[in-house]
């Protein structure tokens, strides 16, 4: 039953490939404008990144990226529909055109950027893979995990890093592989596996989903680089530009002190040429992107600047309370650095 989306995606891909002679270059932006909304692929439920709240609305950092893009295109952040995808379904869904953009805590890697026919637009969250264990096992370091059973999601970079790490340290482990976060959580809680591994942010997020979060501890080791970001199909530069520069606009807005609160005011009053270019009162950035002059204003109004998005979803304004760390602006000791908007 769980397979159906994968198979359906595969079938859709086959049919799409058979029928689709329409060139994709530049097609997505036009198609999105025509249908009136952005179809956005998200996770099946990872609090902080993409999950539904008690009102049934999608929230999270990955979700806000899609909302910002919808706002940049339509001037309205609600013109977006979400497709929840498991780790196994996500790429097929994007390749087959089922979604326009994949914003699903997905790691940017060379192979995915090339052989899978995808292009990653930005890094929206710098992450790294970690391990979570029950406190009662009294493990203090990942180096002590020899012989453990490890719960992991299939088809992820996590799965590959895990094998690399244990092999590199001459340790053995038994993988226990589940597709959904919920299934993994249950298996981990019931003790089918000793260790739960995924991106550190995902561990904190999943820990919150446990009945007794305090019984679990995230080990200090971070064993990999996991730059997470949205991806689009290769060969569609226009759409790729929209995705890339919307995220860059959010980062630049934080740098320039533009927030969802003051964006209208700054649009009218600011004399800073950088701000004016970002907010479309000087030069014609929107035109280059084939969007309205207000594209960035709308995106910032819809979700706020990157800092606001971060704090609301995963930072101090959220139950996760993750520190900015690497994800702080380059001016604040992080590595977040957007190319100039000019």
């Amino acid at each position: 039953m769980r397979l159906t989306p994968t198979v359906a995606g595969g079938a859709a891909l086959c049919i799409g490939l058979l029928a689709g002679n329409a060139a994709f270059a530049g097609a997505t932006l036009d198609a999105v404008k025509k249908k009136g909304f952005v179809q956005c692929g998200v996770s099946t439920g990872l609090p902080g990144f993409s999950s539904t709240n008690d009102k049934g609305e999608w929230t999270g950092l990955d979700v806000d990226v899609c909302r910002a893009i919808a706002a940049a295109v339509f001037g309205d952040g609600s013109k977006v529909k979400f497709t929840p995808l498991t780790s196994k379904e996500r790429f097929t869904a994007l390749q087959s055109g089922e979604v326009d953009i994949l914003s699903r805590n997905t790691t940017w890697s060379l192979q995915r950027d090339t052989a899978l026919g995808l292009n990653f637009t930005n890094v929206t969250y710098y992450d790294g893979q970690g391990f979570m264990v029950p406190k009662k096992l009294e493990v203090t370091s990942a180096k002590e995990l020899d012989g453990a059973a490890v719960c992991v999601q299939p088809g992820t970079t996590t799965e590959l890093n895990l094998s690399d790490y244990f092999r590199g340290n001459g340790m053995k482990f038994t993988p226990v592989v589940f597709e959904n976060d919920d299934e993994i959580r249950v298996a981990f809680e019931q003790g089918r596996c000793d260790v739960f591994t995924t991106d550190a942010s995902g561990l904190y997020s999943n820990r919150l989903g446990m009945p007794t979060p305090d019984d679990y501890v995230v080990l200090p080791e971070i064993i990999s680089k996991e730059p997470l970001g949205p991806a689009v199909r290769q060969g569609d530069d226009e759409w790729e530009n929209v995705g890339r520069w919307t995220v860059n606009a959010l980062i630049t807005a934080e740098e320039l002190g533009v927030t969802s609160e003051n964006v209208e005011e700054m649009k009218g009053s600011s004399d800073n040429p950088n701000v004016k270019r970002l907010l479309g009162t000087e030069d014609t950035m929107g035109e280059y992107l084939k969007l309205d002059a207000d594209w960035a204003v709308n995106a910032i109004k819809a979700v706020g600047n990157y800092g606001e998005v971060f704090e609301r979803n995963v930072g101090q304004g959220s139950p996760l309370k993750i520190e900015r760390g690497l994800n702080a602006l380059w001016t604040n000791g992080g590595i977040l650095y957007a190319p100039p908007i000019r």
Partner: peptide, 26 residues
């Protein structure tokens, strides 16, 4: 695949995802 037994469909799905070659795996 629902209970994490690594049968052909489960492993094939993982290979599909790691290589992105949906048609071949299907």
């Amino acid at each position: 695949v629902a209970i994490a037994y690594p049968d052909l469909v489960a492993i094939g799905g993982t290979v599909l995802n790691q290589t992105g070659q949906a048609i071949e795996i299907v």
